[in-house]
Amino acid sequence: MTTNTHSTAALAAAPSIRKVDLEQLDRSLRRPRTLVSFCLSVLCGILALLAALPLLSVLLMLIWRGGARLSLALFTDLPPAAGMQGGGIGNAIIGTLLVVLLAALISIPLGVLGGVYLAEINPEGPGAAVVRFCAKLLTGLPSILAGVFAYTTVVLLTGRFSPLAGGVALALIMLPIIMLTAEEAIRSVGAEMSEAAIGMGATQTQVVWHILLPTAAPGILTGVLLALARGAGETAPLLFTMTFSDYWLTRHLMEPTASLAVLIFNFSKSPFEAQKEFAWAASLVLVFIVLVLTLGGQALSRQATKMSGL
């Protein structure tokens, strides 16, 4: 009885089973119940380890097969023609950077200000509910359909494949990520600060620009970085909006352009060993870009939670 009240008090103090000294429990594996429990624990552990295996395998293959081609020429030369040796993926790197930049220019203003509307201007209105619902739907939109959308709008209107069409397609994928994380980040700013500003005669606009956006900046930036990472890795939306090119981008900009993702797709089907190697090298560069953006976003979000915790 005493031990019982004792443990209840301990639980009330810290609601966690960590406090219980499990080692003192008698767990004989000869009993069927404990044996079943033990076996399930082992099985669960094996499944969890198996689930971690693919990432390890992908990273090892990237370093092994992609690293073999790593050189300065990789970043400065054009891809080799069929059956040729040497070359690089310089035009694809530039193409990817350009299209992601275009997508960012479209999606960041729309996403951040849309997030401001959802979190601050009119958070409870029916309009906000509709927008939030549509943003959720866009998150689940198959990326190839974003490409179909950009095709029916930009490509059919301008009559050509271009980085602009690719940028619109990627912006569609990045927009809901940015908007929903921006809303979340702005909402987590304490009400006292904006109330103090309003009390001093600030308009809502001034509150947004001087208080909410600077305070929520790390959270918003997290969303932006994660969205950029997602956009940089997308292939399907670029297949028939930007297509591919074997040459450098010219001044016209409105022409088919290479990208890392489409280069990997095209060269993976190639019968030539040299082109396959470039598919791996391009994957290494692409995964490096994506992982740097993702890890940067995660580090920022940890910092943001730490700041709001203070």
Partner: peptide, 23 residues
Amino acid sequence: LKNVITLLAAIPSVVYGLWGIFV
């Protein structure tokens, strides 16, 4: 383990395709 699983989501689809073909 949690981060490993999160990073699985970050690898682009086309890289998984390449990995699928060769591994």
